[in-house]
């Protein structure tokens, strides 16, 4: 018997944290429908495992594991190859005033290799610590931190003259 969220509690959690989880699910899957399936399963599983509102790190880790399971069950291509094919969806809220800047940033993030984009996503929009990122992605702490620095360096090169 686990803690059952009330309807309000569940919807409030979906409203506040759902967009960040969906962003990550989209990056980990190949299609919007896969992202939605993975997100739903991960949210429910995480809540049950935590016996209450789960920590964000657990949800991200569950999304990641379920996306890999889905990719493996879909076909035999390597998971990394599948991850590279993230769905082409509007992942961020449009900002009318800075539409051009936003598109440039988004394109720059998308151009990162999956392992770097993943760390940036978990750090910037997931709000995870490097320790949590390391546990979520299954890499050493130093590797997570260095990937993040490397990703920022790459973005800095791409966005030189635009943001800086």
């Amino acid at each position: 018997m686990h803690h059952e969220p009330s309807s309000d509690e569940w919807r409030s959690w979906l409203r506040t944290s759902g967009p960040r989880f969906l962003l990550y699910a989209r990056q980990q899957t190949r299609s919007e429908s896969d992202a939605e399936d993975v997100l739903q399963d991960a949210l429910v599983e995480s809540w049950k495992r935590a016996d209450g509102m789960p920590p964000d790190a657990l949800v991200f880790a569950t999304i990641r594991r379920r996306a890999i399971d889905l990719a493996r069950s879909s076909d035999r291509r390597s998971v990394r190859e599948l991850e590279a094919g993230a769905p082409d969806t509007e992942c961020f809220l449009p900002d009318v005033e800075e539409r051009e800047m936003q598109r440039t940033l988004e394109d720059a993030v998308k151009s990162l290799q999956p392992i770097y984009r993943e760390v940036v996503t978990l750090k910037i929009w997931g709000g995870l610590t490097f320790q949590e990122i390391a546990e979520t992605t299954g890499v050493p702490l130093n590797t997570a931190a260095s990937r993040y620095r490397y990703a920022l360096g790459g973005l800095r090169d791409i966005l030189k003259g635009v943001v800086l």
Binding site: S7, C91, L93, L105
Partner: peptide, 20 residues
């Protein structure tokens, strides 16, 4: 400054129905 997109109403309804 980039904020992740809101969940579409149809997906929100689906996720709401999946409440444990």
């Amino acid at each position: 400054k980039l904020r992740p997109s809101e969940i579409e109403p149809s997906l929100m309804a689906r996720l709401s129905a999946a409440r444990p």
